[in-house]
Amino acid sequence: MIKISDTSIIELDVNGEKRKVVAEPSDTLLYTLRTELNLTGAKPGCENGDCGACTVIVDGWSVKSCIVLTVEMIGHKITTIEGLKNAPIQKAFVEKWGFQCGFCTSGFIMVCHALAEQHPEADEYVTEEWLQSNLCRCTSYQEIKEAVTSILHP
């Protein structure tokens, strides 16, 4: 049984590295990533699980890091936008003008990346289901659709 009753040092697997962090049970993963590890690519947009700006990938699945406790992540593999290295979706977002202010972009890219890994053949319906998890206030989504389509169905 895992028991964490106060501020503790725990080990997380982030972007392929073992990282020791100080966390309390009430800390969210988003908070730990940003404050402890200075990985600020995951953004706080609502801290309520509604907007997706904080999305990271845990064991291959997209997860909103604002509604996950850091202590739950012991033993899981976490990937943040900083852990992507030349993923096709990053280039696609640039080439298709998939962002303006850029604040929601990390989250969108992580969802797209997880989708491409889990369902490389995803059709429009599945893509829509996955990407409706995130909000973008600047673009019309048309550019994001072009970007994700360009990597799923090049």
């Binding site: 049984m1 028991k3 964490i4 009753s5 049970p25 009430s26 908070y31 801290e47 739950e72």
Partner: peptide, 13 residues
Amino acid sequence: MIPFKFEYYKPDT
């Protein structure tokens, strides 16, 4: 940000 502290347990059974 959860404004209070609590304990975390993850039992096996």
